[in-house]
Amino acid sequence: MRIIAVLILVVPGVIAAYGIKLMRDALFNELTAVFLHIGLQFFIGFILFAAGIGFIGGFIVHRDRKRQAVKKQIHANKR
């Protein structure tokens, strides 16, 4: 069961890492052959990065809520 959880986290991690690579290459003006414009490459890289990190974060929050490890937030300004 743990190997499935690791695989679920590794794939979005690789996608996020590739997104970082695309953004870095765009900043240093190295165009990948697939993209037609540096701006498009940076945008796709950002989307991949955000999607990968968002999936990993959502997976962790879902797992913690399932195990009841997340406590409810108490608002200080509540009257």
Rank of each mutant, 00 (worst) to 15 (best):
F42P: 00
E30R: 15
L36E: 13
G57F: 10
A33S: 11
R67I: 13
R65K: 10
G39I: 07
E30D: 15
A76S: 08
V61P: 01
K66H: 09
G58Q: 00
L31M: 06
L36H: 15
V70L: 09
D64T: 08
F35I: 02
T32S: 13
A50G: 03
A26K: 00
I74D: 05
H75G: 07
K72P: 03
F55V: 04
R63K: 12
T32E: 14
D64N: 11
V61C: 06
H75I: 15
F43I: 07
A26T: 00
K71F: 11
L36D: 14
V70C: 05
L48Q: 02
A33N: 07
L36C: 12
F35D: 00
V70E: 06
A51I: 08
I56W: 02
I44Y: 10
I44N: 03
I74W: 09
H75L: 15
I44W: 10
L40P: 02
A76R: 08
I60Q: 04
K72L: 15
F59I: 01
K71H: 06
Q68W: 15
L27E: 12
L40H: 10
V70Y: 07
D64M: 15
G39W: 13
F49Q: 00
K66W: 11
R65Q: 12
G58S: 03
I53R: 02
A69F: 12
G58E: 00
V70Q: 05
K66C: 07
G57V: 09
R67S: 10
R67W: 14
L40A: 13
G39F: 15
G52N: 00
F46N: 00
K71L: 10
F35Y: 05
A50V: 06
H37Y: 13
I56F: 05
F55R: 02
V61S: 05
I47E: 04
E30T: 13
G57S: 09
G57M: 07
N29R: 15
F46C: 05
L27K: 08
Q73S: 11
K72E: 13
H75E: 14
A50R: 04
K71W: 08
H37W: 12
V34P: 01
Q41I: 05
L48Y: 08
R67N: 12
I56E: 03
A26F: 01
K72Y: 15
I44L: 14
G57C: 09
G57A: 11
R67M: 14
F28A: 06
K66G: 06
V61H: 05
G45L: 01
L27A: 12
G52H: 00
F28Q: 07
A76E: 08
R63D: 09
G45Q: 01
Q73F: 15
K72I: 12
